[in-house]
Design a protein around this nucleic acid. Sequence first.
DNA 1: AGACCGATGTCAGTGACTGTCATCAACGTA
DNA 2: TACGTTGATGACAGTCACTGACATCGGTCT
Lengths: 193, 193
Amino acid sequence: MGRWEPNARGRLEQAALELYIERGYEQTTVAEIAGRAGLTERTFFRHFADKREVLFWGSGPLREHLVAAVEDAPDAAAPIEMVARAVQAVGELMGERRESARRRRSVIDANPELQERELIKLATLSAALAGTLRRRGVTDPAASLAAEVGLAVFKVAFERWVGDPAQPGLSQLIRESFDELKAVTAGSRLQQR
Amino acid sequence: MGRWEPNARGRLEQAALELYIERGYEQTTVAEIAGRAGLTERTFFRHFADKREVLFWGSGPLREHLVAAVEDAPDAAAPIEMVARAVQAVGELMGERRESARRRRSVIDANPELQERELIKLATLSAALAGTLRRRGVTDPAASLAAEVGLAVFKVAFERWVGDPAQPGLSQLIRESFDELKAVTAGSRLQQR
DNA sequence: AGACCGATGTCAGTGACTGTCATCAACGTA
DNA sequence: TACGTTGATGACAGTCACTGACATCGGTCT
């Protein structure tokens, strides 16, 4: 057995989530989180860059998953279709954990600092998607737009999914939102020259 | 003459921008900003909620402008068209100050904290747009999507505009990006059921 | 004159985050 | 077996963003 209890990182993550839910994000100090995990404040910052990051480390694997899905899409697919497939794949992963997503979401919704972090994580995903599209030969305005728009669709679908228990599964909501996107952008008056 | 030099807020803003450019955002302390403006640190925080906000207070008027443009759009216009008009209007406003936009952008690009703030400001604009659309009778998935997608288009156009001096005016880039959006989302394989 | 107001200064905090050095079990190696 | 190395942690001091409370003092109103 090691010198310390195993899984320090996991204990910190768990303690942080609990405290953020119990008292709110701002009312929780890093020292309290570390204390509940049986560690010191300094150690917290060795595992997470800052107090917010403990809620967002999962976005790394998410990014890899998205990128892989775009890389694996058939050549014949249109760019937006590649993105749609990737977003779908992620949606199916998250679809399992609706309750835990809702808990996490309630914490984030209550604090603007956390919302900022969430947005930059999404922007990172979008940039990764756009880069992958470019590597597959999609030229630039289209690549950025497809990635950006695809993530916007995901965002809208995800919000409906966590916000209303009466809604169907995430996968289906994403599909519906992509259809809605098509309807919205096909507005006959879009050409305004 | 008043007891103090006038325009404290403006002096703080000016001093902050200068210092952020000279030394970088992180290397600048609020005390230094206040000192250059002939004020104290405490006074800085009376004018700006935090060290970043000094770069972003302009987004308030921007929001009002966007919302007004959507409110003034003709009833016959499709939702995405209302958003496109609003974004165009804003684009024409900013189009004048390309150099100052570039300076500001270089500061923001160099610091993730500032990028986070920028993103949440954009999200606020998107939410305001969506709310205005709803008030005009657009139902919800469509309203959110039109707002979100419209701002994504703006973002892409804006990035090209500030990033490459060889690009045409912002107004034209926004028009082109909306066209590109239409092309991208019209991909024949979008229906993936 | 005197009461009040509003912008600023002063000062003493709290808490996030960092740099640095010490500790000590585990592990490899002579 | 002894010994050097490594890696995760603790201890501690420090910086800086941000806040609350109270003092100051021209300008303004009555």
